[in-house]
Design a protein around this nucleic acid. Structure first.
Length: 432
RNA sequence: UCCUCGAUAGCUCAACGGUAGAGCAUCCGGCUGUUAACCGGAGGGUUGCAGGUUCGAAUCCUGCUCGAGGAGCCA
């Protein structure tokens, strides 16, 4: 590893360095070749004059195929005409591995299906690299934020015997003759972990066999699920808004170049600072009625267009709280002051990106929880261990789940979550 | 599962009842500062599949397959 990284070229002006990368594009004027090299950190224009290299190297530069692996040695100089502001005057060109001449991803437009079929190669383009770098920073900043506040990472199982919320959307598999399912949420296990460790979080893949075909859905997606013992719903929401603003501000601080590559309007992200506005379910109903004239019967959940209506009334993410009991999961705790609603929140991202967080205070009363399990006709024997958590030292506790891909799509300003994950699992797509 | 739209060269598209074309990509040639470079030439097609209507179908009709956008459900 004796090569320089392209994003560091500014520090090597006047020096002779070697770049190790791939040929991204090439232009030629007969006596002078412009090789655009990418190395994963950026693009560099490498200028090769006929007199600067051997005739063999010059001929090689003329016939290099797109995505051929090459090492290029030369002198770095500032050059306003070059993309990135620096270029290399080439003195040596080495072919590491020639690419076949039929590289499918060109510099013209391609359709979605073709790009997804070639995802393994599409990943190499600057736009996709920018998204994956931002995804990395979002993951890292979520973990750092929680680690700095005394949280412990706990990994729940991926193979599970039952579901938190029904089994229709679960992937079933065989577990030595028993039915098992891929996890669609680690939450119930995280509640057990919170009773052991206090403040915990999980961060991993979850699976939903939903026949959903929208810009916000993946079959396999990543979620971070914090769970906190002795925290009430207000503590919970304060953590959520602190987390989301920290993540957004971290991306803004580190990734101006990537956000520019994506064409993201960063002024909208700069406003994302805690505290976030809060509206109750009832207030949201009224807001939708006033803005759109739609009357939603009390008790019904909001649809995607309703969420967009609510979110567009604010300039930063907005909490919607106090949903009707019947619209939400069995484990949520009813509001003691208003038992027909639960202590919960959905955090809606701006610009129509929809729900990125769902959280609640959990039901900590054994009898009331058993009642709700019966009402939902869930298999009681499967929840024996979960009920034990209320039997042995039950305390108020709260938690939430933040969807990674929706968060990435929103911060990057993408129109579909399929670009936010290296290899998207979509309805009817499991290749590559 | 439902609604809407679509499928033509490797890619993006045109031709809309009468001989399937363009740009890009590929290959060959030209050009000493190119910026998705440009200029000239070449190769490249059972028009998604199966039927039907017609003198004649990429084009009209039916069914199927696959894809896109959305609904429901969710993060």
């Amino acid at each position: 590893m004796d090569h320089a990284a392209i994003h560091d070229l500014g520090r090597h002006v006047g020096e002779t360095v070697t770049l190790a990368g791939w040929l991204y594009n090439k232009r030629s004027s007969g006596k002078i070749h412009f090789l655009i090299v990418r190395d994963g950190t950026g693009l560099c224009q490498c200028v090769m004059g006929r007199k600067d290299v051997t005739p063999e190297e010059f001929e090689l530069g003329d016939h290099l195929t797109q995505e051929s692996a090459i090492r290029v040695t030369g002198t770095v100089r500032a050059e306003p005409r070059a993309p990135g502001g620096y270029e290399m005057g080439v003195s040596k060109l080495e072919l590491v591995a020639e690419a076949a001449p039929d590289y499918p991803i060109t510099h013209k437009e391609h359709g979605v299906e073709f790009l997804m079929d070639n995802r393994h190669l599409w990943m190499r383009t600057p736009r996709q690299v920018a998204i994956l770098r931002i995804r990395h920073t979002i993951v890292e900043s979520i973990r750092t934020f929680l680690n700095d506040r005394g949280f412990t990472l706990v990994d729940p199982p991926i193979l599970t015997p039952s579901a938190a919320e029904g089994t229709t959307n679960l992937f079933e598999t065989d577990y030595f003759g028993e039915k098992a399912y891929l996890s669609q949420s680690g939450q119930l296990y995280m509640e057990a972990a919170a009773m052991a460790l206090g403040k915990v979080y999980s961060f991993g893949p979850t699976f939903r066999a939903e026949k959903s075909k929208t810009r916000r859905h993946l079959i396999e997606f990543w979620m971070c699920e914090p769970e906190m013992a002795y925290w009430n719903q207000d503590d919970n929401m304060r953590l959520q808004e602190g987390l989301v603003s920290h993540v957004v501000q971290t991306v803004l601080a580190r990734h101006q170049a990537e956000l520019k590559e994506l064409g993201r309007d960063t002024s909208l992200l700069e406003k994302v600072t805690a505290p976030f506005p809060r509206v109750t379910y009832d207030e949201a109903l009224k807001l939708i009625q006033e803005r759109e004239g739609r009357d939603i019967p009390w008790g019904e959940d909001f649809g995607a267009p309703d969420e967009t209506t609510i979110a567009s009334a604010f300039d930063r993410p907005v909490f919607v709280t106090h949903y009707p009991v019947q619209a939400k999961a069995f484990y949520m705790k009813p509001d003691p002051k208003r038992p027909e609603v639960v202590l919960c929140d959905d955090l809606l991202a701006p610009e129509g990106y929809g729900e990125i967080i769902g959280g609640s205070q959990r039901q900590d009363d054994l009898d009331l929880l058993e009642q709700r399990i019966k009402q939902h006709k869930l298999p009681e024997q499967a929840y024996g261990w979960y009920l034990d958590l209320r039997r042995y030292g039950s305390v108020p506790h709260s938690g939430f789940g933040i969807g990674l891909e929706r968060t990435v799509a929103w911060i990057c300003g993408l129109d579909h979550v399929r670009e936010t994950i290296p290899f998207a699992r979509l309805l009817n797509r499991i290749y590559p």
